[in-house]
Design a protein around this nucleic acid. Structure first.
Lengths: 143, 143
DNA sequence: GCGAAGAAATAGCCTATGCTATATTTTTCG
DNA sequence: CGAAAAATATAGCATAGGCTATTTCTTCGC
Protein backbone atom coordinates (compact mmCIF):
# COMPACT_ATOMS: atom_id res chain seq x y z
CA UNK A 1 0.00 0.00 0.00
CA UNK A 2 1.26 3.52 -0.69
CA UNK A 3 2.08 5.10 2.63
CA UNK A 4 2.09 8.60 1.20
CA UNK A 5 -1.00 8.72 -0.95
CA UNK A 6 -1.65 12.37 -1.78
CA UNK A 7 -4.90 14.12 -1.08
CA UNK A 8 -7.33 14.28 -3.97
CA UNK A 9 -6.79 18.03 -4.19
CA UNK A 10 -3.02 17.65 -4.42
CA UNK A 11 -3.39 15.06 -7.08
CA UNK A 12 -5.81 17.26 -9.00
CA UNK A 13 -3.22 20.04 -8.85
CA UNK A 14 -0.61 17.73 -10.32
CA UNK A 15 -2.85 16.86 -13.21
CA UNK A 16 -3.73 20.51 -13.68
CA UNK A 17 -0.06 21.34 -13.92
CA UNK A 18 0.54 18.55 -16.42
CA UNK A 19 -2.30 19.93 -18.54
CA UNK A 20 -0.88 23.44 -18.45
CA UNK A 21 2.53 22.16 -19.44
CA UNK A 22 1.02 20.33 -22.36
CA UNK A 23 -0.66 23.53 -23.53
CA UNK A 24 2.67 25.32 -23.88
CA UNK A 25 4.59 22.32 -25.17
CA UNK A 26 3.52 22.88 -28.74
CA UNK A 27 4.47 26.54 -28.61
CA UNK A 28 7.87 25.56 -27.28
CA UNK A 29 8.42 23.08 -30.07
CA UNK A 30 7.49 25.52 -32.79
CA UNK A 31 9.54 28.33 -31.33
CA UNK A 32 12.60 26.13 -30.99
CA UNK A 33 12.22 24.87 -34.52
CA UNK A 34 11.79 28.33 -35.99
CA UNK A 35 14.96 29.33 -34.17
CA UNK A 36 16.76 26.34 -35.68
CA UNK A 37 15.57 27.16 -39.17
CA UNK A 38 16.64 30.77 -38.94
CA UNK A 39 20.04 29.71 -37.64
CA UNK A 40 20.49 27.07 -40.33
CA UNK A 41 18.89 28.61 -43.36
CA UNK A 42 18.67 32.29 -42.62
CA UNK A 43 14.89 32.23 -42.56
CA UNK A 44 11.94 30.12 -41.47
CA UNK A 45 9.38 29.36 -44.15
CA UNK A 46 6.00 27.91 -43.35
CA UNK A 47 6.61 24.93 -45.62
CA UNK A 48 9.85 24.04 -43.84
CA UNK A 49 8.28 24.44 -40.42
CA UNK A 50 5.43 22.14 -41.43
CA UNK A 51 7.83 19.54 -42.85
CA UNK A 52 9.95 19.45 -39.71
CA UNK A 53 6.97 19.30 -37.39
CA UNK A 54 5.50 16.52 -39.49
CA UNK A 55 2.20 18.31 -40.00
CA UNK A 56 0.33 19.66 -43.00
CA UNK A 57 1.07 23.21 -44.06
CA UNK A 58 -2.23 24.74 -42.90
CA UNK A 59 -1.63 23.21 -39.47
CA UNK A 60 1.68 25.04 -39.27
CA UNK A 61 0.05 28.26 -40.45
CA UNK A 62 -2.52 27.94 -37.68
CA UNK A 63 0.17 27.29 -35.08
CA UNK A 64 2.12 30.33 -36.27
CA UNK A 65 -1.01 32.42 -35.87
CA UNK A 66 -1.12 31.27 -32.28
CA UNK A 67 2.55 32.13 -31.76
CA UNK A 68 1.83 35.63 -33.04
CA UNK A 69 -1.18 35.94 -30.78
CA UNK A 70 1.03 35.02 -27.82
CA UNK A 71 3.71 37.50 -28.79
CA UNK A 72 6.36 34.91 -29.60
CA UNK A 73 6.66 35.41 -33.34
CA UNK A 74 5.92 37.84 -36.12
CA UNK A 75 5.23 37.37 -39.80
CA UNK A 76 3.65 39.05 -42.78
CA UNK A 77 1.53 37.19 -45.33
CA UNK A 78 3.59 35.19 -47.83
CA UNK A 79 6.76 36.06 -45.97
CA UNK A 80 8.97 34.22 -43.51
CA UNK A 81 8.39 33.83 -39.79
CA UNK A 82 10.54 35.59 -37.20
CA UNK A 83 10.86 35.31 -33.45
CA UNK A 84 10.21 38.19 -31.11
CA UNK A 85 12.59 38.78 -28.27
CA UNK A 86 10.35 36.71 -26.03
CA UNK A 87 10.26 33.98 -28.66
CA UNK A 88 14.02 33.90 -29.06
CA UNK A 89 14.46 33.78 -25.31
CA UNK A 90 12.04 30.85 -25.09
CA UNK A 91 13.81 29.06 -27.94
CA UNK A 92 17.15 29.33 -26.17
CA UNK A 93 15.74 28.12 -22.88
CA UNK A 94 13.99 25.19 -24.56
CA UNK A 95 17.09 24.23 -26.52
CA UNK A 96 19.25 24.20 -23.40
CA UNK A 97 16.70 22.16 -21.48
CA UNK A 98 16.43 19.68 -24.31
CA UNK A 99 20.18 19.17 -24.34
CA UNK A 100 20.28 18.65 -20.59
CA UNK A 101 17.45 16.12 -20.67
CA UNK A 102 19.12 14.11 -23.42
CA UNK A 103 22.41 14.15 -21.56
CA UNK A 104 20.75 13.09 -18.32
CA UNK A 105 19.01 10.18 -20.02
CA UNK A 106 22.25 9.05 -21.60
CA UNK A 107 24.05 9.43 -18.28
CA UNK A 108 21.67 7.01 -16.58
CA UNK A 109 22.09 4.46 -19.35
CA UNK A 110 19.49 5.21 -22.01
CA UNK A 111 20.79 4.62 -25.56
CA UNK A 112 21.41 7.88 -27.39
CA UNK A 113 18.75 7.33 -30.03
CA UNK A 114 16.09 6.43 -27.50
CA UNK A 115 17.15 9.39 -25.40
CA UNK A 116 16.52 11.77 -28.28
CA UNK A 117 13.15 10.19 -28.99
CA UNK A 118 11.89 10.26 -25.40
CA UNK A 119 13.37 13.67 -24.61
CA UNK A 120 11.07 15.25 -27.16
CA UNK A 121 8.11 14.55 -24.91
CA UNK A 122 9.78 14.51 -21.51
CA UNK A 123 11.49 17.89 -21.69
CA UNK A 124 8.30 19.89 -21.51
CA UNK A 125 7.49 18.41 -18.12
CA UNK A 126 10.89 19.08 -16.57
CA UNK A 127 10.50 21.92 -14.08
CA UNK A 128 13.26 24.40 -13.29
CA UNK A 129 13.88 22.64 -10.01
CA UNK A 130 14.31 19.29 -11.74
CA UNK A 131 16.44 20.83 -14.47
CA UNK A 132 18.83 22.17 -11.84
CA UNK A 133 19.03 18.73 -10.27
CA UNK A 134 19.84 17.23 -13.67
CA UNK A 135 22.60 19.78 -14.22
CA UNK A 136 24.08 19.10 -10.81
CA UNK A 137 23.98 15.36 -11.44
CA UNK A 138 25.69 15.75 -14.80
CA UNK A 139 28.34 18.05 -13.35
CA UNK A 140 29.08 15.49 -10.64
CA UNK A 141 29.17 12.64 -13.14
CA UNK A 142 31.75 14.54 -15.15
CA UNK A 143 33.85 14.76 -11.94
CA UNK B 1 26.86 23.90 -34.62
CA UNK B 2 25.09 20.65 -33.84
CA UNK B 3 27.13 17.89 -35.40
CA UNK B 4 24.25 15.43 -35.29
CA UNK B 5 21.30 17.45 -36.46
CA UNK B 6 18.59 14.96 -37.44
CA UNK B 7 16.93 14.94 -40.81
CA UNK B 8 13.63 16.79 -41.03
CA UNK B 9 11.88 13.46 -41.49
CA UNK B 10 13.45 11.97 -38.36
CA UNK B 11 12.51 15.02 -36.38
CA UNK B 12 8.97 14.88 -37.72
CA UNK B 13 8.79 11.25 -36.56
CA UNK B 14 9.86 12.27 -33.08
CA UNK B 15 7.12 14.85 -32.88
CA UNK B 16 4.63 12.37 -34.27
CA UNK B 17 5.55 9.94 -31.52
CA UNK B 18 5.22 12.63 -28.87
CA UNK B 19 1.75 13.42 -30.20
CA UNK B 20 0.70 9.77 -30.09
CA UNK B 21 1.95 9.44 -26.55
CA UNK B 22 -0.06 12.44 -25.54
CA UNK B 23 -3.19 10.89 -26.99
CA UNK B 24 -2.96 7.88 -24.66
CA UNK B 25 -1.68 9.81 -21.65
CA UNK B 26 -5.15 10.81 -20.56
CA UNK B 27 -6.45 7.25 -20.82
CA UNK B 28 -3.54 6.08 -18.71
CA UNK B 29 -4.21 8.66 -16.04
CA UNK B 30 -7.89 7.82 -15.79
CA UNK B 31 -7.31 4.09 -15.76
CA UNK B 32 -4.70 4.35 -13.04
CA UNK B 33 -6.94 6.55 -10.96
CA UNK B 34 -9.93 4.28 -11.31
CA UNK B 35 -7.72 1.43 -10.18
CA UNK B 36 -6.65 3.47 -7.15
CA UNK B 37 -10.21 4.32 -6.24
CA UNK B 38 -11.39 0.74 -6.48
CA UNK B 39 -8.45 -0.38 -4.34
CA UNK B 40 -9.02 2.33 -1.74
CA UNK B 41 -12.77 2.67 -1.62
CA UNK B 42 -14.12 -0.49 -3.16
CA UNK B 43 -15.61 1.38 -6.09
CA UNK B 44 -14.95 4.25 -8.45
CA UNK B 45 -17.69 6.86 -8.69
CA UNK B 46 -17.76 9.49 -11.38
CA UNK B 47 -17.75 12.30 -8.85
CA UNK B 48 -14.61 10.96 -7.14
CA UNK B 49 -12.86 10.44 -10.44
CA UNK B 50 -13.66 14.01 -11.47
CA UNK B 51 -12.48 15.40 -8.14
CA UNK B 52 -9.16 13.59 -8.28
CA UNK B 53 -8.54 14.51 -11.90
CA UNK B 54 -9.39 18.11 -11.11
CA UNK B 55 -12.00 18.35 -13.84
CA UNK B 56 -15.74 19.00 -13.92
CA UNK B 57 -17.97 15.99 -13.60
CA UNK B 58 -19.21 15.98 -17.21
CA UNK B 59 -15.61 15.97 -18.35
CA UNK B 60 -14.99 12.81 -16.37
CA UNK B 61 -18.16 11.24 -17.76
CA UNK B 62 -16.96 11.95 -21.26
CA UNK B 63 -13.54 10.48 -20.55
CA UNK B 64 -15.13 7.36 -19.12
CA UNK B 65 -17.15 7.02 -22.30
CA UNK B 66 -13.89 7.00 -24.19
CA UNK B 67 -12.40 4.40 -21.86
CA UNK B 68 -15.42 2.20 -22.55
CA UNK B 69 -15.07 2.75 -26.27
CA UNK B 70 -11.47 1.63 -26.07
CA UNK B 71 -12.31 -1.45 -24.05
CA UNK B 72 -10.56 -0.34 -20.88
CA UNK B 73 -13.53 0.14 -18.59
CA UNK B 74 -17.18 -0.74 -18.16
CA UNK B 75 -20.04 1.02 -16.43
CA UNK B 76 -23.80 1.23 -16.34
CA UNK B 77 -25.71 4.50 -16.03
CA UNK B 78 -25.78 5.90 -12.49
CA UNK B 79 -23.46 3.11 -11.33
CA UNK B 80 -19.77 2.85 -10.60
CA UNK B 81 -16.98 2.41 -13.11
CA UNK B 82 -14.97 -0.80 -13.41
CA UNK B 83 -11.83 -1.76 -15.28
CA UNK B 84 -11.75 -4.49 -17.86
CA UNK B 85 -8.87 -6.94 -17.82
CA UNK B 86 -7.08 -4.73 -20.35
CA UNK B 87 -7.78 -1.69 -18.19
CA UNK B 88 -6.47 -3.35 -15.04
CA UNK B 89 -3.37 -4.46 -16.87
CA UNK B 90 -2.75 -0.93 -18.12
CA UNK B 91 -3.31 0.48 -14.64
CA UNK B 92 -0.69 -1.84 -13.17
CA UNK B 93 1.82 -1.04 -15.88
CA UNK B 94 1.26 2.70 -15.48
CA UNK B 95 1.53 2.51 -11.73
CA UNK B 96 4.82 0.64 -11.89
CA UNK B 97 6.24 3.06 -14.44
CA UNK B 98 5.18 6.02 -12.33
CA UNK B 99 6.97 4.59 -9.31
CA UNK B 100 10.12 3.97 -11.30
CA UNK B 101 10.15 7.49 -12.75
CA UNK B 102 9.71 9.06 -9.32
CA UNK B 103 12.49 6.91 -7.89
CA UNK B 104 14.81 7.74 -10.77
CA UNK B 105 14.21 11.46 -10.34
CA UNK B 106 14.90 11.21 -6.63
CA UNK B 107 18.00 9.13 -7.30
CA UNK B 108 19.50 11.86 -9.47
CA UNK B 109 18.81 14.49 -6.84
CA UNK B 110 15.32 15.85 -7.48
CA UNK B 111 13.43 16.66 -4.25
CA UNK B 112 10.68 14.13 -3.58
CA UNK B 113 7.82 16.62 -3.92
CA UNK B 114 9.10 18.00 -7.21
CA UNK B 115 9.70 14.46 -8.42
CA UNK B 116 6.05 13.59 -7.85
CA UNK B 117 4.90 16.74 -9.60
CA UNK B 118 7.09 16.33 -12.67
CA UNK B 119 6.63 12.57 -12.91
CA UNK B 120 2.95 13.06 -13.61
CA UNK B 121 3.78 14.48 -17.00
CA UNK B 122 7.11 12.79 -17.70
CA UNK B 123 6.00 9.21 -17.19
CA UNK B 124 3.86 9.07 -20.29
CA UNK B 125 6.85 9.79 -22.48
CA UNK B 126 9.10 7.14 -20.96
CA UNK B 127 9.46 4.32 -23.45
CA UNK B 128 9.98 0.70 -22.46
CA UNK B 129 13.62 0.97 -23.42
CA UNK B 130 14.12 4.00 -21.20
CA UNK B 131 12.16 2.41 -18.38
CA UNK B 132 14.50 -0.57 -18.44
CA UNK B 133 17.48 1.76 -18.31
CA UNK B 134 15.96 3.52 -15.29
CA UNK B 135 15.42 0.19 -13.54
CA UNK B 136 18.97 -0.89 -14.22
CA UNK B 137 20.29 2.43 -12.93
CA UNK B 138 18.24 2.16 -9.75
CA UNK B 139 19.30 -1.44 -9.20
CA UNK B 140 22.94 -0.40 -9.55
CA UNK B 141 22.47 2.58 -7.25
CA UNK B 142 21.04 0.24 -4.60
CA UNK B 143 24.25 -1.89 -5.01
C1' DG C 1 6.07 41.03 -68.86
C1' DC C 2 3.55 37.21 -68.52
C1' DG C 3 2.20 32.56 -67.66
C1' DA C 4 3.32 28.49 -65.02
C1' DA C 5 4.95 26.71 -60.77
C1' DG C 6 5.40 27.02 -56.05
C1' DA C 7 4.29 28.82 -51.47
C1' DA C 8 1.05 30.52 -48.27
C1' DA C 9 -3.58 31.62 -46.87
C1' DT C 10 -8.33 30.48 -46.42
C1' DA C 11 -12.46 27.62 -46.06
C1' DG C 12 -14.49 23.98 -43.99
C1' DC C 13 -14.43 19.73 -41.59
C1' DC C 14 -13.17 16.36 -37.66
C1' DT C 15 -11.89 14.77 -32.86
C1' DA C 16 -10.47 15.54 -28.17
C1' DT C 17 -10.89 17.91 -24.04
C1' DG C 18 -12.51 21.42 -21.33
C1' DC C 19 -16.67 24.11 -19.45
C1' DT C 20 -21.71 25.56 -17.62
C1' DA C 21 -26.48 24.76 -17.33
C1' DT C 22 -30.06 21.59 -17.14
C1' DA C 23 -32.42 17.17 -16.96
C1' DT C 24 -32.83 12.73 -15.00
C1' DT C 25 -32.14 9.05 -11.85
C1' DT C 26 -30.94 7.24 -7.38
C1' DT C 27 -30.56 7.66 -2.56
C1' DT C 28 -31.65 9.27 1.84
C1' DC C 29 -34.47 10.53 5.52
C1' DG C 30 -38.44 12.55 8.01
C1' DC D 1 -43.70 6.59 1.03
C1' DG D 2 -42.59 10.59 -0.83
C1' DA D 3 -39.93 14.79 -1.22
C1' DA D 4 -35.41 16.83 -0.97
C1' DA D 5 -30.67 16.04 -1.84
C1' DA D 6 -27.07 13.97 -4.23
C1' DA D 7 -25.19 11.79 -8.18
C1' DT D 8 -25.04 11.14 -12.99
C1' DA D 9 -26.27 12.08 -17.67
C1' DT D 10 -27.18 15.12 -21.44
C1' DA D 11 -27.18 19.36 -24.15
C1' DG D 12 -24.71 22.81 -25.99
C1' DC D 13 -20.68 25.66 -26.39
C1' DA D 14 -15.50 26.89 -26.77
C1' DT D 15 -10.61 26.12 -27.96
C1' DA D 16 -6.75 23.51 -29.71
C1' DG D 17 -4.91 20.89 -33.09
C1' DG D 18 -5.26 17.84 -36.92
C1' DC D 19 -6.76 17.21 -42.03
C1' DT D 20 -8.03 18.08 -47.38
C1' DA D 21 -9.40 21.05 -50.97
C1' DT D 22 -9.18 25.44 -52.91
C1' DT D 23 -7.84 30.25 -53.58
C1' DT D 24 -4.52 33.82 -53.70
C1' DC D 25 -0.11 35.71 -53.95
C1' DT D 26 4.95 35.52 -55.31
C1' DT D 27 8.53 34.07 -57.96
C1' DC D 28 10.82 32.25 -61.94
C1' DG D 29 11.92 31.47 -66.60
C1' DC D 30 11.08 32.22 -71.30
Amino acid sequence: MPQDSPSPADQADRFARAREVQAVALLEDYVEMIGDLIAEMGEARVADIAARMGVAQPTATKAIARLKREGLATSRPYRGVFLTEAGAEMAERVRARHRTVVELLIAVGVPAETAELDAEGIEHHVSDRTLRAFEAFLAAARH
